[in-house]
Amino acid sequence: MTVQTVQPSAEPFFFKGGDIGVVVCHGFTGSPQSMRYLGERLHAAGHTVIGPRLKGHGETPAALAQATAADWIASVDEAIQTLRGHCSQIFMLGQSMGGTLTLYTAAMHPELLRGVITINAAVRLSRPDMAALAFDRRLPDTVPGVGSDIKDPTVAEVAYPEVPVVAFRQLYALMGVAHDLLPRVQCPALVITARDDHVVDPANGPLIAGKVGAKRVEMAWLDNSYHIASMDHDKDRIVSLAGRFIRSV
């Protein structure tokens, strides 16, 4: 049995705080490192925060090639169960594919989440170049990665420099399912979207906000960040938006 080594700073985290718990979930090919700042700030506001490491992430591209969308869902479910041992109210905040998982979880387990926050979540990529990777048998096993799309030049995301093609198939399946489940998202939702995103089409923001079944849906636009907004110039605005949303719910 091979034991994988987690990359430095890609470890999951858990910050014990008050009765309100928040799952903060990273995206495709990334790691909890991209969500740590948000997690620390939400913990400073008094919340209990958990940042899970999705299976196959924060290790090697080979590890990601062995993971499935069902594995990523299981990683989130495990984090929620951990929070349930400490908190009576649970919120989930996810970025990119983490936002996709947030929407999926809210739709499938409405009894678990009090509210959801998405940051540049993807339910439709609208990227023909990426779609072409899913089933093209002529491609190599890996292609260049999509991580660290950040406007601030002083920071970098811990993400894979290359991505297994098989992992894209899992991502597309997850996005398709999450998209069709949007009407089942009934809890309050805050949809945060960067106007200048080089990975996920910003049109996903209005698409999600328009299709979720929740009575309360809020949208917020970021003007000074790229895709990994949790590490970018607008990270403190995200903390403020998330904190206000959680308090108001």
Rank of each mutant, 00 (worst) to 15 (best):
V158S: 04
V158I: 15
A167H: 04
D149W: 04
V158P: 07
S225H: 02
L207S: 07
P153N: 06
Q170W: 02
A209W: 11
I208P: 15
V217C: 06
G176W: 08
A156N: 11
R169Q: 05
Q170Y: 00
M175N: 01
A194Q: 04
A167V: 03
G213F: 13
V212R: 10
E162N: 13
I192G: 01
D234R: 03
M175V: 09
P183K: 07
D234L: 08
D201V: 00
D152I: 02
P140D: 14
L190E: 06
I150D: 07
G205P: 02
L222W: 00
A189Q: 10
S148K: 06
A159C: 13
I192W: 11
M231L: 14
N204G: 03
H233K: 05
V191W: 06
T154I: 04
V143C: 08
A173G: 11
D234I: 15
K151D: 06
C187N: 13
P183A: 12
A214Y: 14
L182M: 15
M219H: 03
Y160K: 15
A178K: 05
C187I: 15
T193M: 10
R169L: 14
V199K: 07
K235Y: 04
V217D: 11
P144A: 05
K151H: 09
R195T: 15
I208Q: 01
V191S: 00
K235W: 09
R195Y: 13
S230L: 01
H198F: 14
D180F: 15
K215G: 13
D232Q: 05
R216S: 04
P153I: 08
V155W: 01
Y226I: 01
G147A: 13
A156C: 11
R184M: 09
V191Y: 07
A159H: 01
V199R: 13
F168T: 01
A229V: 04
